[in-house]
């Protein structure tokens, strides 16, 4: 599949079925790259201007944040005496751990709920009630159930990540064309074959969307997750502690690192998505 960056029919849509009213929005590769650079740079420029003008109070400027990033990356921080890389490693472990458990549970439950009305009707109210509870609210319960350290932290990340995966998988399965299933059944496929050969492949784009959203929420849950007493390592801890000591440039530097890593992981997921959906 050839890449047409930013074009409307980039992925997940049948080839040959183009949208004529969107065709003029397709951009050349160099244009799309330029746009991708211009918006973040404009954002940084406005941020710097607002800081220089004093309109944002004690907000650190991009320049100060860059300096904080450099000092965090090259020498141990003044609070926990560890470098950015070990904080990043500790947080990455919690996010990836929570994400993979959420993937197993979320996609599994989502398939069952989408496929069996019995499961859907039994679990749907519970899922919808737990889903809106913010990860932060679980902190104390997580300690009671999993003590302190990585286990409760991973649990909180899991709680954040699992619901987008369930919801997207369910609606992916619901959107499967019943005609395809009936056709497969007519050809003699049993329900297991229909699930694996028809349902999962057709629901895959939406499942992957669920995984991408889930990964983002996993990162968003990180500060709450690292409030459970995780010892001395973690980007969430850096944000929290440097806020207390009013080193806001360190806080924002850690926020920037989370943003960049999140962006990079999403990029990897989109790559994986393209590889998985090549058959389309």
């Amino acid at each position: 599949m050839e890449r047409l960056p930013l074009s409307a029919n980039e992925r997940g849509r049948p080839r040959g079925l183009d949208y004529p009213w969107k065709r003029d929005q397709a951009l050349s590769a160099s244009w799309s790259l330029a746009l991708r650079l211009i918006t973040p740079l404009t954002f940084i420029a406005i941020w710097q201007l607002l800081c220089s003008s004093g309109a944002l109070g004690a907000t650190p400027s991009p320049w100060q944040v860059l300096g904080a990033l450099w000092s965090l990356a090259t020498k141990p921080d003044p609070y926990l005496h560890a470098t950015l890389w070990s904080h990043l490693g500790a947080s990455l472990f919690r996010v990836i751990g929570g994400f993979f458990i959420a993937l197993l549970v979320g996609v599994g439950l989502g398939l069952l709920m989408g496929w069996y009305p019995l499961v859907y009707h039994s679990l749907h109210p519970l899922v919808e009630m737990i889903r809106p509870v913010p990860p932060f609210a679980w902190v104390v319960l997580a300690i009671l159930w999993f003590k302190i350290g990585n286990a409760p932290a991973i649990f909180i990340v899991f709680l954040g990540a699992v619901f987008p995966m369930i919801i997207n998988t369910v609606s992916g399965v619901e959107a499967v064309d019943r005609v395809l299933c009936e056709a497969a059944a007519t050809l003699g496929a049993n329900s297991r074959q229909i699930l694996w050969k028809v349902v999962i492949p057709s629901a895959l784009p939406q499942i992957i969307t669920g995984l991408r959203v889930g990964l983002g929420v996993a990162w968003m849950s990180l500060i709450a997750a690292e409030m459970v007493g995780v010892g001395g390592r973690g980007l969430g801890l850096i944000i929290d502690i440097s806020k207390s000591t009013w080193k806001l440039d360190y806080s924002v530097a850690a926020m920037v690192v989370i943003g960049l890593i999140g962006f990079f992981l999403d990029f990897l997921m989109r790559r994986a998505e393209r590889a998985l959906l090549r058959w389309r």
């Binding site: 902190v139 104390v140 319960l141 300690i143 009671l144 003590k147 302190i148 350290g149 409030m227 459970v228 007493g229 010892g231 001395g232 801890l237 929290d240 502690i241």
Partner: peptide, 20 residues
């Protein structure tokens, strides 16, 4: 010792389960 950073409400939970 092993110093752990935690907000006081979390300490209640952690001490009640002897996690700290």
């Amino acid at each position: 010792i092993q110093e752990v950073y935690m907000a006081p409400p979390q300490m209640l939970a952690a001490l009640s389960t002897s996690s700290v």
